[in-house]
Design a protein around this nucleic acid. Structure first.
Lengths: 109, 109
DNA sequence: TAAAGTTAGTTACATAAAGTAAGTAACTTA
DNA sequence: TAAGTTACTTACTTTATGTAACTAACTTTA
């Protein structure tokens, strides 16, 4: 009916990026390395989910976890090259939202 | 701590695109107008969810529903300008996946 | 004319994912 | 010794998704 077929790599990319919170976490990290509590505060994500996502993103090679044995311990998460490589996608979404997302939505949660 | 703040429009864009199946449905429609059963077949999404998503996407102005009173009835969904405007984002994701998604994943569901 | 087929859904129920809030470990400061 | 800090984890509730059967409206076939 249609010669157009879903590319498995595209599907996989979408399945990663469309996990709830994942894109926002990666976007947040594009501003630079950040610690756990900063991210929960800025994103409004629970510790439980942030913990899960960072573990996944670490395993998938998007994020690195650095431990600084200060007092109290400081743990920073930062993007790998793979994580950084998503920047053009995020910029494209950012750009799209400026044209197509109504002002009204900027007041809503 | 950081001058970088989450833009509400970006957040809204992400919340739309990261709904499960939504991005794949929009991507699929970029190939041209399609009917309900074609989409369930090609995407592997259940009728229940496809129905929900198409209703939402229609209300949000991404998709239009056309009824052709043939026998049996033919209903086609197509993208509006707003739906089409997501093409650069999809292309960017497609492009990213070619570099960063391993071949191994192309065998997995 | 009754039975079966078609498309585009909906409904009821089961499972998986996410949200909430309290708890923990390891350490320090008051 | 009590309270504070960060980075989590655990137990429980709510929401979202998956599965499979069912429906409406119409037509074709036996």
């Amino acid at each position: 009916m249609n010669e157009f077929e879903l590319c498995p790599r595209f599907e996989k990319a979408i399945s990663i990026l469309s996990q709830r919170w994942t894109a926002l976490i990666l976007y947040q990290l594009m501003a630079g390395p950040q610690r756990f509590c900063t991210m929960t505060d800025k994103l409004g994500v629970s510790g439980k989910i942030l913990s899960e996502r960072l573990k996944d993103l670490d395993q998938q090679g998007f994020v690195i976890r650095h431990v600084y044995p200060e007092t109290p311990v400081r743990i920073e998460y930062s993007l790998t090259d793979k994580g950084m490589s998503l920047t053009p996608i995020m910029k494209e979404i950012e750009n799209w939202s400026k044209t197509w997302i109504e002002q009204e939505f900027t007041d809503k949660k």
